[in-house]
């Protein structure tokens, strides 16, 4: 103990000496060289500073990055904050910590926050979420009538595995998405067990292996998602859709097409600066998003991938700024 105390005393003397030295030289050397770089331009004053919530899927990254680059080019000060989706993000918007969600699939789960004035539903971002149940392409080739939901029971035996309790395994979508698998199975009297999948990664694993090993699988999938371009799959058709609120869905019909929404704080909507315009007018197609997403997935830096698309689509981008 005695020795330790001595070491402690010495360390604190040293620390004090170091602190003195530090305050004396003040990091001037490094700053002098670093400040040689240009530091922002005057246009910054016109547009405010905003934080964009970043969610964990690549399509989202693509949209958010394009908005970030366009806004920065117009003098806005943009930061990106990685955040869990839904509640955490809406609360953060309410407290003013983040200002924008560029792609929400929630179909109105933000309503309670919108009613309180915490956020504003700005409208759709041009992307349309198309959700459905898919089988690997080889199954559609081998059993052409499998893509009709009425024939699913005929093939249920193909889908049985150790997880599925003797019935066909029906792989359900991730928790953040609109899912009505259990209703679909019971309403259509399908001989399947719904297996909840907690992540996009789990579904990708299932479909990739099903394509590679020619194993059977039926699962939830959606676009825009650039995975379909790599691993072809066939959609199983259920009767045309007749619902918008998942709570009221009968389960007999397919998923509806879902416009993906932009959500912003009142601060953004009232600022009336370049960012307000970009947020209000930002709109692009599923193809656009998939292009940028594909670049990001193949390892391109998101900022570079976004800039590449912006350079190639000047007219569209200019339209957002009007």
């Amino acid at each position: 103990m005695v020795r330790n105390k001595r070491v402690g005393a010495k360390a604190s003397v040293l620390a004090a000496a170091a602190a003195l030295l530090l305050s004396a030289c003040g990091g001037a050397g490094v700053d002098a060289e670093a400040s040689a770089a240009p530091s922002g331009d005057a246009a910054l004053a016109e547009c405010g500073s905003y934080a964009i919530a970043m969610h964990a899927w690549v399509g989202y990254t693509a949209s958010a990055q394009v908005i970030t680059e366009v806004a920065k080019a117009n003098g806005c000060d943009i930061s990106q904050v990685t955040l869990a989706e839904a509640g955490v993000t809406y609360d953060a918007m309410e407290s003013g910590s983040v200002d924008l969600v560029v792609e929400d699939w929630g179909g109105g789960r933000w309503q309670e926050w919108a009613d309180r004035g915490a956020l504003v539903e700005v409208g759709d971002n041009g992307n349309v979420g198309i959700i459905g149940m898919y089988v690997p392409q080889w199954m559609a080739d081998e059993y052409p009538d499998i893509t009709d939901s009425a024939n699913l029971n005929k093939y249920a035996d193909l889908f049985v595995n150790d997880e599925s309790k003797g019935k066909g395994a029906w792989y359900e979508g991730p928790p953040g998405y609109t899912t009505i698998g259990e209703k679909m199975v019971s309403a259509n009297k399908l001989n399947f067990t719904v297996l909840p999948q907690g992540s996009e990664a789990a579904l990708i694993d299932i479909f990739t292996k099903a394509a590679e090993n020619k194993t059977a699988a039926i699962g939830y999938w959606w676009t825009p998602q650039n995975f379909l371009a790599k691993v072809p799959m066939a959609r199983v058709n259920f009767p045309a859709n007749d619902w918008t609120d998942p709570a009221e869905a009968s389960g007999l019909t397919d998923y509806p097409e879902l416009p993906l929404m932009k959500l912003a704080t009142p601060k953004v909507m009232e600022a009336n600066d370049a960012f307000t315009k970009i947020v209000k007018n930002f709109k692009w197609t599923n193809d656009d998003q998939n292009q940028v997403a594909a670049d990001i997935e193949s390892g391109t830096d998101p900022a570079v991938a976004a800039q590449k698309w912006i350079d190639a689509n000047k007219a569209t981008v200019d339209g957002w700024l009007k």
Partner: peptide, 24 residues
Amino acid sequence: IGGFVGGGGLGYLVLLGSSKPELQ
């Protein structure tokens, strides 16, 4: 974490509750 990879059960319900306000 098991809920993310097909464990189902309570783990999955916790994930579900954190992303679907009606199931919080």
